[in-house]
Amino acid sequence: MASRRRTLLKVIILGDSGVGKTSLMNQYVNKKFSNQYKATIGADFLTKEVQFEDRLFTLQIWDTAGQERFQSLGVAFYRGADCCVLVYDVNSMKSFDNLNNWREEFLIQASPSDPDNFPFVLLGNKVDVDGGNSRVVSEKKAKAWCASKGNIPYFETSAKDGINVEEAFQCIVKNALKNEPEEELYMPDTVDVVGGNRGQGSSGCC
């Protein structure tokens, strides 16, 4: 098949149960928040048409179950991902401590061709809760973690109030495109790289 400009961007949202993965996705795509989302079983995704630098993309956002016990399903759902969004709850230290696990598990199961440069974005969600008084993970601590993992972009969000959600996803789109090979951009009729190999770009940050 001839290589064309890529129009589908696949993004995976990972993080502990109850940090707000489904809510973030729904706030971004449908501009809605509900207290009554059910725990995600298996996986689901929503799509949204996005424009980036005069190009149109279909952003496919995958929402997965947060319990570690279901991680073995990842193999089927993570493949072909262009960006991984890690989410924690700023009011839960455990959800922050688990970020390393989620990141590593993703890299194992998705096995991207260039794991060192695979784009991640970190979201600290639920900043609205209790006016910020129940917060246990500081912005400084989160940013230090991001710095230690190769400058992962970081956003503090509230899926409930819609704070920073749009900004975060714009960055996610940008990062999902980060590793797009140059030739795919400018030489639409060249032969596809064997194995669909992509992810040879340099690292960068929003």
Binding site: G18, K38, A39
Partner: peptide, 12 residues
């Protein structure tokens, strides 16, 4: 904690 999170989003 996991149970607390799930019961409040079960068949509400």
């Amino acid at each position: 904690g996991l149970i607390d999170k799930d019961v409040v989003r079960t068949d509400r």
